[in-house]
């Protein structure tokens, strides 16, 4: 789906932002990209859809070398949601905005209209509203709806929940999770370790432009030393599990820890009996 082969990248007149990155993301994976501000996460995502081209090495997106294809062409199959929805939204109604995103992907107008209504329904958005007066969370949903309308097979999310409140955040992540279940591959930058723990399956950890960790979220989340190097803290429940040790060290969610505690209670009661 997405392959980085010994990729180097540097902005003009600056030292290398990314150094010797190699990894591959398979179809249907949900990958979280972790690291502190300035570690190169956004740069990596821009290389993945061809907005930036590697200075050395090769990026293969959907089997195509990004150096040889235009980004606008790759954009038909790679959705990219930016941190700031204002840069994307350029129409004065929600419906027009979604249709604008579809213009490039679908030639048939009736098909575009149908698809647009489908998205409005999925996001429970009203098509007539003017995005200008809506909250950042609502605008982020419109931006996402417009990206998803083209049914991308790879979806890249650059801090999709920044600036959103908890409810808006869950609304966005709920839809992303739904898509992932239907088979869309997802690459997501996030600083929110709770969200990473809840949704992602695999994590890539970047530090100063180098890849310092790559593996299942469950393993990465327990590697406090590794997370520390990227100035991250594990999510609360895995950290709690690790402190408790023993069978609890494997606990990853509230539900898992709860069921272990309930099991322990059962044991106690049997012992008392």
């Amino acid at each position: 789906m997405l392959e980085f082969e010994r990729v180097f990248f540097g902005y003009e007149g600056q030292s290398a932002t990314l150094k010797d990155l190699s990894f591959a993301i398979g179809e249907g994976e949900f990958v979280a990209l972790l690291g502190e501000n300035g570690a190169g996460k956004s740069t990596l995502c821009r290389l993945a859809n061809g907005l930036l081209k590697p200075s050395a090495g090769r990026v293969l997106a959907l089997g195509m070398d990004t150096k040889q294809v235009k980004t606008s062409l790759l954009a038909r199959d790679i959705g990219f949601l930016f941190q700031n929805p204002d840069r994307q939204i350029c129409q004065n109604s929600v419906r027009a905005e979604i249709l604008f995103g579809l213009e490039i992907a679908l030639a048939d107008e009736a098909a575009r209209r149908a698809r647009c209504e489908e998205m409005l329904e999925l996001f429970s958005l009203s098509g007539e509203r003017d995005p200008f007066g809506m909250s950042r969370g609502e605008r982020q949903q419109i931006a996402l709806a417009s990206v998803l309308a083209r049914a991308p097979s790879l979806l890249i999310l650059d801090e999709p929940t920044t600036g959103l409140d908890y409810r808006e955040c869950m609304a966005i992540m709920g839809i992303v999770a739904q898509l992932h279940q239907k088979g869309t591959t997802i690459l997501m930058i996030s600083h929110d370790m709770e969200i990473v723990a809840d949704f992602a399956g695999r994590a890539l950890v970047l530090s100063e432009g180098g890849l310092i960790g790559d593996g299942p979220v469950r393993r990465i989340m327990r590697d406090e030393a590794l997370l520390g190097r990227a100035s991250l803290l594990p999510a609360q429940i895995p950290a709690l599990g690790a402190r408790l040790g023993g069978p609890y060290a494997e606990a990853f969610s509230v539900e898992e820890l709860l069921s272990l505690a309930v099991g322990k209670k059962g044991e106690k009661e049997r012992a008392e009996a």
């Binding site: 409140d165 908890y166 509230v254 505690a261």
Partner: peptide, 20 residues
């Protein structure tokens, strides 16, 4: 009110419901 609460607090509420 749409406010996030720490996961340990969520866990505590679940434990309370179980009577633990």
């Amino acid at each position: 009110a749409g406010v996030n609460i720490p996961r340990v607090t969520t866990l505590a509420r679940a434990l309370r419901e179980e009577g633990l």
